[in-house]
Design a binder for these strands. Structure first.
Lengths: 226, 226
DNA sequence: ATACGTCTGTTGCGTACGCAACGAAACGAG
DNA sequence: CTCGTTTCGTTGCGTACGCAACAGACGTAT
Protein backbone atom coordinates (compact mmCIF):
# COMPACT_ATOMS: atom_id res chain seq x y z
CA UNK A 1 0.00 0.00 0.00
CA UNK A 2 2.91 2.31 0.56
CA UNK A 3 3.68 2.70 -3.12
CA UNK A 4 0.03 3.40 -3.71
CA UNK A 5 0.21 6.32 -1.32
CA UNK A 6 3.18 7.79 -3.10
CA UNK A 7 1.34 7.35 -6.36
CA UNK A 8 -1.62 9.19 -4.96
CA UNK A 9 0.51 12.23 -4.33
CA UNK A 10 0.08 12.96 -8.01
CA UNK A 11 -3.65 12.50 -7.70
CA UNK A 12 -5.54 15.75 -7.86
CA UNK A 13 -7.35 14.84 -4.66
CA UNK A 14 -4.23 14.42 -2.60
CA UNK A 15 -2.02 17.12 -4.02
CA UNK A 16 -0.05 18.89 -1.37
CA UNK A 17 -0.02 15.93 0.94
CA UNK A 18 3.05 13.83 1.59
CA UNK A 19 2.79 10.09 1.18
CA UNK A 20 2.89 9.78 4.95
CA UNK A 21 0.04 12.24 5.26
CA UNK A 22 -2.01 10.20 2.85
CA UNK A 23 -1.28 7.11 4.88
CA UNK A 24 -2.53 8.98 7.94
CA UNK A 25 -5.86 10.09 6.52
CA UNK A 26 -6.46 7.04 4.37
CA UNK A 27 -8.21 4.90 6.97
CA UNK A 28 -10.12 7.99 8.06
CA UNK A 29 -11.65 8.12 4.55
CA UNK A 30 -12.87 4.56 5.10
CA UNK A 31 -12.14 3.64 1.51
CA UNK A 32 -14.04 0.84 -0.11
CA UNK A 33 -11.34 -0.88 -2.17
CA UNK A 34 -12.44 -3.28 -4.88
CA UNK A 35 -10.63 -5.33 -7.49
CA UNK A 36 -11.76 -6.03 -11.01
CA UNK A 37 -10.74 -8.26 -13.87
CA UNK A 38 -10.61 -7.17 -17.46
CA UNK A 39 -14.06 -6.41 -18.80
CA UNK A 40 -15.76 -6.15 -15.43
CA UNK A 41 -18.00 -3.18 -14.75
CA UNK A 42 -16.63 -0.83 -12.14
CA UNK A 43 -19.64 1.41 -12.43
CA UNK A 44 -22.79 0.55 -14.30
CA UNK A 45 -25.19 3.02 -15.86
CA UNK A 46 -28.33 3.58 -13.78
CA UNK A 47 -26.88 1.78 -10.80
CA UNK A 48 -25.98 3.25 -7.44
CA UNK A 49 -22.65 5.05 -7.15
CA UNK A 50 -20.66 3.82 -4.16
CA UNK A 51 -18.71 7.07 -3.89
CA UNK A 52 -15.97 9.11 -5.46
CA UNK A 53 -13.79 6.74 -7.48
CA UNK A 54 -10.02 6.67 -7.30
CA UNK A 55 -8.08 4.45 -9.68
CA UNK A 56 -5.37 2.68 -7.72
CA UNK A 57 -4.15 0.29 -10.41
CA UNK A 58 -4.98 -0.50 -13.98
CA UNK A 59 -6.82 1.20 -16.77
CA UNK A 60 -10.54 1.76 -17.18
CA UNK A 61 -12.78 3.37 -19.74
CA UNK A 62 -15.68 5.69 -19.11
CA UNK A 63 -18.47 5.30 -21.64
CA UNK A 64 -22.01 6.42 -22.16
CA UNK A 65 -24.63 4.05 -23.46
CA UNK A 66 -26.60 5.72 -26.22
CA UNK A 67 -30.25 4.91 -26.56
CA UNK A 68 -29.51 3.58 -30.02
CA UNK A 69 -27.39 0.95 -28.31
CA UNK A 70 -23.80 1.74 -29.04
CA UNK A 71 -21.24 2.99 -26.54
CA UNK A 72 -19.39 6.29 -26.72
CA UNK A 73 -16.11 6.37 -24.85
CA UNK A 74 -15.85 9.61 -22.93
CA UNK A 75 -12.53 9.12 -21.18
CA UNK A 76 -9.83 6.63 -20.35
CA UNK A 77 -8.65 6.43 -16.76
CA UNK A 78 -5.21 5.48 -15.52
CA UNK A 79 -3.76 4.88 -12.08
CA UNK A 80 -4.29 7.93 -9.88
CA UNK A 81 -7.23 9.27 -11.83
CA UNK A 82 -10.47 10.36 -10.25
CA UNK A 83 -13.91 9.53 -11.59
CA UNK A 84 -17.58 9.99 -10.77
CA UNK A 85 -16.63 12.86 -8.46
CA UNK A 86 -19.00 15.25 -10.20
CA UNK A 87 -21.89 12.81 -9.96
CA UNK A 88 -21.34 12.25 -6.27
CA UNK A 89 -20.91 15.92 -5.47
CA UNK A 90 -23.98 16.82 -7.50
CA UNK A 91 -26.01 14.41 -5.45
CA UNK A 92 -26.83 11.98 -8.24
CA UNK A 93 -27.38 8.57 -6.78
CA UNK A 94 -27.42 6.71 -10.09
CA UNK A 95 -24.61 6.83 -12.57
CA UNK A 96 -25.21 8.24 -16.05
CA UNK A 97 -22.12 6.44 -17.35
CA UNK A 98 -20.52 3.04 -17.35
CA UNK A 99 -16.95 2.49 -16.20
CA UNK A 100 -15.30 -0.72 -17.34
CA UNK A 101 -11.95 -2.24 -16.41
CA UNK A 102 -9.76 -2.51 -19.49
CA UNK A 103 -7.49 -4.87 -17.58
CA UNK A 104 -6.97 -5.96 -14.01
CA UNK A 105 -7.77 -2.94 -11.91
CA UNK A 106 -8.12 -1.79 -8.34
CA UNK A 107 -10.35 1.05 -7.33
CA UNK A 108 -11.10 2.86 -4.09
CA UNK A 109 -14.52 4.37 -3.55
CA UNK A 110 -14.67 7.20 -1.05
CA UNK A 111 -17.97 8.35 0.35
CA UNK A 112 -18.43 12.07 0.26
CA UNK A 113 -19.28 12.17 3.94
CA UNK A 114 -15.95 10.69 4.89
CA UNK A 115 -14.05 12.93 2.51
CA UNK A 116 -15.64 16.03 3.98
CA UNK A 117 -15.91 14.64 7.48
CA UNK A 118 -14.05 16.30 10.26
CA UNK A 119 -11.95 13.99 12.33
CA UNK A 120 -10.18 14.76 15.52
CA UNK A 121 -6.61 14.41 14.36
CA UNK A 122 -6.33 15.04 10.64
CA UNK A 123 -8.53 18.03 10.11
CA UNK A 124 -5.82 19.86 8.20
CA UNK A 125 -5.55 16.97 5.78
CA UNK A 126 -9.29 16.88 5.33
CA UNK A 127 -9.30 20.57 4.56
CA UNK A 128 -6.64 20.07 1.99
CA UNK A 129 -8.52 17.25 0.32
CA UNK A 130 -11.72 19.26 0.30
CA UNK A 131 -9.99 22.22 -1.31
CA UNK A 132 -8.46 19.88 -3.87
CA UNK A 133 -11.84 18.44 -4.71
CA UNK A 134 -13.24 21.92 -5.19
CA UNK A 135 -10.35 22.76 -7.45
CA UNK A 136 -10.88 19.66 -9.56
CA UNK A 137 -14.53 20.49 -10.12
CA UNK A 138 -13.89 24.18 -10.74
CA UNK A 139 -11.12 23.45 -13.23
CA UNK A 140 -13.36 21.06 -15.06
CA UNK A 141 -16.05 23.71 -15.28
CA UNK A 142 -13.58 26.17 -16.72
CA UNK A 143 -12.31 23.75 -19.31
CA UNK A 144 -15.84 22.77 -20.30
CA UNK A 145 -16.71 26.45 -20.62
CA UNK A 146 -13.69 26.94 -22.89
CA UNK A 147 -14.80 24.05 -25.04
CA UNK A 148 -18.29 25.50 -25.29
CA UNK A 149 -16.84 28.76 -26.51
CA UNK A 150 -15.08 26.88 -29.28
CA UNK A 151 -18.09 24.75 -30.15
CA UNK A 152 -20.25 27.86 -30.38
CA UNK A 153 -18.17 29.45 -33.09
CA UNK A 154 -19.79 29.52 -36.50
CA UNK A 155 -17.00 28.55 -38.85
CA UNK A 156 -14.40 25.85 -38.73
CA UNK A 157 -11.66 28.37 -39.29
CA UNK A 158 -12.82 30.39 -36.31
CA UNK A 159 -12.76 27.31 -34.14
CA UNK A 160 -9.31 26.35 -35.30
CA UNK A 161 -7.76 29.78 -34.93
CA UNK A 162 -9.23 30.15 -31.45
CA UNK A 163 -8.11 26.69 -30.44
CA UNK A 164 -4.62 27.13 -31.81
CA UNK A 165 -4.35 30.55 -30.19
CA UNK A 166 -5.30 29.09 -26.85
CA UNK A 167 -2.77 26.32 -27.23
CA UNK A 168 -0.12 28.85 -28.18
CA UNK A 169 -1.02 30.94 -25.13
CA UNK A 170 -0.81 27.90 -22.92
CA UNK A 171 2.60 26.93 -24.22
CA UNK A 172 3.83 30.51 -24.27
CA UNK A 173 5.15 30.19 -27.79
CA UNK A 174 3.94 30.38 -31.35
CA UNK A 175 5.38 26.90 -31.81
CA UNK A 176 3.70 24.14 -29.89
CA UNK A 177 2.40 20.61 -30.03
CA UNK A 178 -1.28 19.84 -29.78
CA UNK A 179 -2.16 16.99 -27.43
CA UNK A 180 -4.92 15.57 -29.62
CA UNK A 181 -4.71 13.66 -32.83
CA UNK A 182 -6.79 14.80 -35.77
CA UNK A 183 -9.89 12.80 -35.02
CA UNK A 184 -9.68 13.72 -31.37
CA UNK A 185 -9.38 17.36 -32.28
CA UNK A 186 -12.28 17.08 -34.70
CA UNK A 187 -14.45 15.60 -32.01
CA UNK A 188 -13.37 18.25 -29.52
CA UNK A 189 -14.33 20.98 -31.95
CA UNK A 190 -17.49 19.22 -33.01
CA UNK A 191 -16.60 18.99 -36.69
CA UNK A 192 -15.89 16.38 -39.30
CA UNK A 193 -12.37 15.03 -39.35
CA UNK A 194 -11.85 15.41 -43.07
CA UNK A 195 -13.28 18.91 -43.00
CA UNK A 196 -10.78 19.68 -40.26
CA UNK A 197 -7.91 18.43 -42.38
CA UNK A 198 -9.20 20.44 -45.31
CA UNK A 199 -9.40 23.65 -43.32
CA UNK A 200 -5.92 23.10 -41.87
CA UNK A 201 -4.65 22.77 -45.42
CA UNK A 202 -6.44 25.95 -46.42
CA UNK A 203 -4.96 27.84 -43.49
CA UNK A 204 -1.52 26.61 -44.43
CA UNK A 205 -2.10 27.66 -48.01
CA UNK A 206 -3.25 31.09 -46.82
CA UNK A 207 -0.05 31.49 -44.83
CA UNK A 208 -1.75 31.60 -41.46
CA UNK A 209 -0.15 28.54 -39.96
CA UNK A 210 2.37 25.86 -40.63
CA UNK A 211 2.31 22.39 -39.20
CA UNK A 212 3.70 18.92 -39.45
CA UNK A 213 1.92 16.16 -37.60
CA UNK A 214 1.11 17.60 -34.19
CA UNK A 215 3.72 20.36 -34.28
CA UNK A 216 2.09 23.65 -35.15
CA UNK A 217 3.46 27.10 -35.83
CA UNK A 218 1.36 30.24 -35.88
CA UNK A 219 2.64 32.59 -38.55
CA UNK A 220 2.53 36.36 -38.19
CA UNK A 221 -1.11 37.10 -38.84
CA UNK A 222 -0.62 40.40 -40.67
CA UNK A 223 -3.83 42.10 -41.55
CA UNK A 224 -4.76 42.48 -45.22
CA UNK A 225 -1.54 43.94 -46.62
CA UNK A 226 -1.25 43.70 -50.35
CA UNK B 1 -29.46 42.14 7.86
CA UNK B 2 -32.06 39.69 9.09
CA UNK B 3 -34.06 39.75 5.91
CA UNK B 4 -30.83 39.19 4.01
CA UNK B 5 -30.24 36.01 5.94
CA UNK B 6 -33.68 34.69 5.15
CA UNK B 7 -33.07 35.55 1.52
CA UNK B 8 -29.83 33.62 1.61
CA UNK B 9 -31.68 30.49 2.58
CA UNK B 10 -32.57 30.21 -1.09
CA UNK B 11 -28.97 30.71 -2.06
CA UNK B 12 -27.31 27.55 -3.23
CA UNK B 13 -24.49 28.11 -0.77
CA UNK B 14 -26.68 28.21 2.29
CA UNK B 15 -29.31 25.65 1.41
CA UNK B 16 -30.28 23.52 4.35
CA UNK B 17 -29.44 26.21 6.88
CA UNK B 18 -32.04 28.14 8.78
CA UNK B 19 -31.86 31.91 8.74
CA UNK B 20 -30.66 31.79 12.33
CA UNK B 21 -27.92 29.35 11.34
CA UNK B 22 -26.80 31.72 8.63
CA UNK B 23 -26.71 34.53 11.13
CA UNK B 24 -24.52 32.34 13.31
CA UNK B 25 -21.92 31.47 10.71
CA UNK B 26 -22.04 34.76 8.85
CA UNK B 27 -19.45 36.62 10.91
CA UNK B 28 -17.34 33.47 10.89
CA UNK B 29 -17.12 33.78 7.10
CA UNK B 30 -15.71 37.29 7.59
CA UNK B 31 -17.65 38.61 4.62
CA UNK B 32 -16.37 41.62 2.77
CA UNK B 33 -19.58 43.51 1.99
CA UNK B 34 -19.44 46.24 -0.62
CA UNK B 35 -22.01 48.54 -2.18
CA UNK B 36 -22.16 49.66 -5.78
CA UNK B 37 -24.05 52.20 -7.82
CA UNK B 38 -25.46 51.52 -11.24
CA UNK B 39 -22.72 51.00 -13.78
CA UNK B 40 -19.94 50.39 -11.26
CA UNK B 41 -17.66 47.42 -11.75
CA UNK B 42 -18.09 44.75 -9.13
CA UNK B 43 -15.40 42.62 -10.70
CA UNK B 44 -13.09 43.78 -13.43
CA UNK B 45 -11.42 41.57 -16.00
CA UNK B 46 -7.77 40.83 -15.22
CA UNK B 47 -8.07 42.25 -11.72
CA UNK B 48 -7.77 40.39 -8.46
CA UNK B 49 -10.81 38.47 -7.25
CA UNK B 50 -11.64 39.30 -3.63
CA UNK B 51 -13.42 35.99 -3.11
CA UNK B 52 -16.58 34.09 -3.84
CA UNK B 53 -19.27 36.64 -4.69
CA UNK B 54 -22.75 36.59 -3.20
CA UNK B 55 -25.34 39.03 -4.49
CA UNK B 56 -27.18 40.50 -1.51
CA UNK B 57 -29.20 43.15 -3.32
CA UNK B 58 -29.69 44.37 -6.84
CA UNK B 59 -28.93 43.04 -10.28
CA UNK B 60 -25.59 42.63 -12.01
CA UNK B 61 -24.41 41.38 -15.36
CA UNK B 62 -21.51 39.06 -16.06
CA UNK B 63 -19.77 39.81 -19.33
CA UNK B 64 -16.65 38.85 -21.16
CA UNK B 65 -14.59 41.41 -23.01
CA UNK B 66 -13.74 40.14 -26.45
CA UNK B 67 -10.43 41.07 -27.94
CA UNK B 68 -12.31 42.80 -30.74
CA UNK B 69 -13.63 45.15 -28.10
CA UNK B 70 -17.29 44.34 -27.63
CA UNK B 71 -18.83 42.76 -24.57
CA UNK B 72 -20.68 39.47 -24.47
CA UNK B 73 -23.11 39.08 -21.61
CA UNK B 74 -22.76 35.62 -20.11
CA UNK B 75 -25.27 35.84 -17.30
CA UNK B 76 -27.44 38.15 -15.28
CA UNK B 77 -27.31 37.90 -11.51
CA UNK B 78 -30.09 38.62 -9.05
CA UNK B 79 -30.24 38.77 -5.29
CA UNK B 80 -29.04 35.51 -3.77
CA UNK B 81 -26.99 34.46 -6.75
CA UNK B 82 -23.41 33.28 -6.53
CA UNK B 83 -20.64 34.35 -8.87
CA UNK B 84 -16.94 33.86 -9.43
CA UNK B 85 -17.08 30.74 -7.30
CA UNK B 86 -15.49 28.61 -10.02
CA UNK B 87 -12.65 31.07 -10.51
CA UNK B 88 -11.88 31.20 -6.81
CA UNK B 89 -12.08 27.44 -6.35
CA UNK B 90 -9.93 26.85 -9.42
CA UNK B 91 -7.26 29.06 -7.93
CA UNK B 92 -7.42 31.81 -10.53
CA UNK B 93 -6.33 35.03 -8.97
CA UNK B 94 -7.40 37.29 -11.83
CA UNK B 95 -10.90 37.39 -13.19
CA UNK B 96 -11.58 36.39 -16.79
CA UNK B 97 -14.87 38.28 -16.73
CA UNK B 98 -16.31 41.62 -15.77
CA UNK B 99 -19.26 41.94 -13.41
CA UNK B 100 -21.13 45.22 -13.51
CA UNK B 101 -23.92 46.53 -11.32
CA UNK B 102 -27.05 47.11 -13.39
CA UNK B 103 -28.47 49.18 -10.55
CA UNK B 104 -27.71 49.85 -6.93
CA UNK B 105 -26.27 46.60 -5.58
CA UNK B 106 -24.72 45.05 -2.52
CA UNK B 107 -22.33 42.17 -2.68
CA UNK B 108 -20.55 40.02 -0.14
CA UNK B 109 -17.18 38.54 -1.00
CA UNK B 110 -16.22 35.45 0.94
CA UNK B 111 -12.66 34.22 0.95
CA UNK B 112 -12.33 30.53 0.26
CA UNK B 113 -10.26 30.04 3.40
CA UNK B 114 -13.04 31.31 5.59
CA UNK B 115 -15.67 29.31 3.78
CA UNK B 116 -13.73 26.10 4.23
CA UNK B 117 -12.23 27.07 7.57
CA UNK B 118 -13.10 25.04 10.60
CA UNK B 119 -14.24 27.08 13.52
CA UNK B 120 -14.79 25.90 17.01
CA UNK B 121 -18.55 26.31 17.22
CA UNK B 122 -20.12 26.09 13.80
CA UNK B 123 -18.31 23.24 12.17
CA UNK B 124 -21.55 21.60 11.15
CA UNK B 125 -22.59 24.73 9.34
CA UNK B 126 -19.24 24.96 7.63
CA UNK B 127 -19.57 21.40 6.48
CA UNK B 128 -22.94 22.13 5.05
CA UNK B 129 -21.70 25.16 3.19
CA UNK B 130 -18.75 23.25 1.81
CA UNK B 131 -20.99 20.46 0.57
CA UNK B 132 -23.27 23.03 -1.00
CA UNK B 133 -20.36 24.65 -2.79
CA UNK B 134 -19.29 21.29 -4.13
CA UNK B 135 -22.79 20.65 -5.34
CA UNK B 136 -22.96 23.98 -7.12
CA UNK B 137 -19.76 23.30 -9.00
CA UNK B 138 -20.66 19.71 -9.79
CA UNK B 139 -24.10 20.66 -11.06
CA UNK B 140 -22.59 23.29 -13.27
CA UNK B 141 -20.20 20.75 -14.71
CA UNK B 142 -23.05 18.41 -15.49
CA UNK B 143 -25.09 21.11 -17.17
CA UNK B 144 -22.11 22.27 -19.20
CA UNK B 145 -21.49 18.70 -20.31
CA UNK B 146 -25.11 18.39 -21.37
CA UNK B 147 -24.74 21.54 -23.42
CA UNK B 148 -21.58 20.21 -25.03
CA UNK B 149 -23.43 17.08 -26.04
CA UNK B 150 -26.00 19.23 -27.80
CA UNK B 151 -23.44 21.50 -29.39
CA UNK B 152 -21.53 18.51 -30.72
CA UNK B 153 -24.43 17.22 -32.75
CA UNK B 154 -24.10 17.66 -36.47
CA UNK B 155 -27.51 18.74 -37.59
CA UNK B 156 -29.87 21.34 -36.25
CA UNK B 157 -32.69 18.86 -36.11
CA UNK B 158 -30.62 16.52 -33.98
CA UNK B 159 -29.87 19.33 -31.58
CA UNK B 160 -33.48 20.33 -31.36
CA UNK B 161 -34.87 16.85 -30.88
CA UNK B 162 -32.31 16.11 -28.18
CA UNK B 163 -32.94 19.39 -26.44
CA UNK B 164 -36.71 19.04 -26.56
CA UNK B 165 -36.46 15.45 -25.37
CA UNK B 166 -34.39 16.52 -22.40
CA UNK B 167 -36.86 19.26 -21.56
CA UNK B 168 -39.70 16.79 -21.83
CA UNK B 169 -37.86 14.38 -19.56
CA UNK B 170 -37.23 17.14 -17.05
CA UNK B 171 -40.86 18.16 -16.98
CA UNK B 172 -42.09 14.59 -17.02
CA UNK B 173 -44.56 15.26 -19.80
CA UNK B 174 -44.65 15.52 -23.56
CA UNK B 175 -46.08 19.00 -23.07
CA UNK B 176 -43.80 21.56 -21.54
CA UNK B 177 -42.56 25.12 -21.72
CA UNK B 178 -39.02 25.94 -22.66
CA UNK B 179 -37.32 28.51 -20.44
CA UNK B 180 -35.44 30.24 -23.25
CA UNK B 181 -36.72 32.54 -25.94
CA UNK B 182 -35.79 31.81 -29.55
CA UNK B 183 -32.59 33.77 -29.68
CA UNK B 184 -31.53 32.42 -26.30
CA UNK B 185 -32.19 28.89 -27.49
CA UNK B 186 -30.32 29.55 -30.70
CA UNK B 187 -27.30 30.74 -28.77
CA UNK B 188 -27.52 27.80 -26.39
CA UNK B 189 -27.52 25.39 -29.31
CA UNK B 190 -24.87 27.33 -31.18
CA UNK B 191 -26.98 27.98 -34.27
CA UNK B 192 -28.50 30.87 -36.14
CA UNK B 193 -31.80 32.14 -34.82
CA UNK B 194 -33.57 32.18 -38.15
CA UNK B 195 -32.28 28.73 -38.99
CA UNK B 196 -33.68 27.58 -35.68
CA UNK B 197 -37.09 28.99 -36.52
CA UNK B 198 -36.91 27.39 -39.92
CA UNK B 199 -36.13 23.98 -38.52
CA UNK B 200 -38.87 24.26 -35.92
CA UNK B 201 -41.29 24.96 -38.75
CA UNK B 202 -40.00 21.97 -40.66
CA UNK B 203 -40.42 19.72 -37.64
CA UNK B 204 -43.95 20.96 -37.18
CA UNK B 205 -44.66 20.34 -40.86
CA UNK B 206 -43.23 16.83 -40.52
CA UNK B 207 -45.55 16.12 -37.63
CA UNK B 208 -42.79 15.65 -35.07
CA UNK B 209 -43.72 18.49 -32.77
CA UNK B 210 -46.27 21.17 -32.22
CA UNK B 211 -45.66 24.45 -30.50
CA UNK B 212 -46.99 27.88 -29.86
CA UNK B 213 -44.62 30.45 -28.42
CA UNK B 214 -42.72 28.66 -25.67
CA UNK B 215 -45.26 25.87 -25.18
CA UNK B 216 -44.08 22.73 -26.95
CA UNK B 217 -45.65 19.36 -27.50
CA UNK B 218 -43.76 16.29 -28.64
CA UNK B 219 -45.97 14.26 -30.94
CA UNK B 220 -45.95 10.48 -30.86
CA UNK B 221 -42.98 9.52 -32.94
CA UNK B 222 -44.57 6.07 -33.42
CA UNK B 223 -43.56 5.09 -29.90
CA UNK B 224 -45.69 5.36 -26.81
CA UNK B 225 -48.98 7.14 -26.70
CA UNK B 226 -49.44 9.90 -24.19
C1' DA C 1 9.18 -9.89 -46.90
C1' DT C 2 3.55 -9.56 -46.71
C1' DA C 3 -0.30 -8.24 -44.41
C1' DC C 4 -2.92 -5.43 -41.43
C1' DG C 5 -4.36 -1.47 -38.69
C1' DT C 6 -4.13 3.39 -37.66
C1' DC C 7 -3.57 8.14 -38.82
C1' DT C 8 -3.61 11.80 -42.09
C1' DG C 9 -4.60 14.32 -46.31
C1' DT C 10 -7.45 14.91 -50.60
C1' DT C 11 -11.46 15.44 -53.41
C1' DG C 12 -16.41 15.52 -55.38
C1' DC C 13 -21.03 15.92 -54.30
C1' DG C 14 -25.09 17.63 -52.16
C1' DT C 15 -27.22 20.18 -48.78
C1' DA C 16 -27.91 22.14 -44.34
C1' DC C 17 -27.42 26.30 -42.54
C1' DG C 18 -25.37 31.06 -41.82
C1' DC C 19 -26.58 35.51 -43.22
C1' DA C 20 -29.30 39.39 -44.37
C1' DA C 21 -33.55 41.36 -45.08
C1' DC C 22 -38.29 41.89 -44.38
C1' DG C 23 -43.06 41.40 -42.38
C1' DA C 24 -46.19 40.29 -38.70
C1' DA C 25 -47.53 40.04 -34.02
C1' DA C 26 -47.17 41.38 -29.16
C1' DC C 27 -46.17 44.70 -25.69
C1' DG C 28 -45.61 48.97 -23.26
C1' DA C 29 -45.23 54.06 -23.18
C1' DG C 30 -46.55 58.42 -24.73
C1' DC D 1 -54.98 55.77 -30.58
C1' DT D 2 -49.97 55.90 -32.68
C1' DC D 3 -45.39 55.14 -32.16
C1' DG D 4 -41.20 52.46 -30.85
C1' DT D 5 -39.27 48.17 -29.33
C1' DT D 6 -38.86 43.37 -29.05
C1' DT D 7 -39.76 38.74 -30.54
C1' DC D 8 -40.86 35.38 -33.93
C1' DG D 9 -41.55 33.54 -38.59
C1' DT D 10 -40.33 33.43 -43.56
C1' DT D 11 -37.51 33.42 -47.65
C1' DG D 12 -33.53 33.70 -51.21
C1' DC D 13 -28.85 33.26 -51.80
C1' DG D 14 -24.31 31.42 -51.41
C1' DT D 15 -21.15 28.53 -49.31
C1' DA D 16 -19.03 26.02 -45.65
C1' DC D 17 -18.96 21.66 -44.34
C1' DG D 18 -20.79 16.81 -43.55
C1' DC D 19 -20.27 12.60 -45.81
C1' DA D 20 -18.20 9.01 -48.30
C1' DA D 21 -14.52 7.14 -50.60
C1' DC D 22 -9.81 6.66 -51.56
C1' DA D 23 -4.64 6.99 -51.21
C1' DG D 24 -0.26 7.46 -48.95
C1' DA D 25 2.58 7.16 -44.75
C1' DC D 26 3.83 4.87 -40.70
C1' DG D 27 3.99 1.34 -37.19
C1' DT D 28 3.44 -3.53 -35.63
C1' DA D 29 2.73 -8.35 -35.84
C1' DT D 30 3.28 -12.56 -38.51
Amino acid sequence: MEQVFSLLQDNALFQGLAASDIGEVWPCLSPDVRSYDKGELILCADELIPGVGVMLEGVASVAREEEDGHRVVLAVLGAGDLFAEAFVCAGLERSPVTVMAEGAARVAFLSLEHVLGRCARNCAHHSRITANLLRVLARKSLSLRAQIDLLSMRTLRDKLTAYLASQAAKSGSRRFDVPLDRSGLAEYLGVDRSALSRELSNMKRDGLIDYHKNAFHLLSSRKSVD
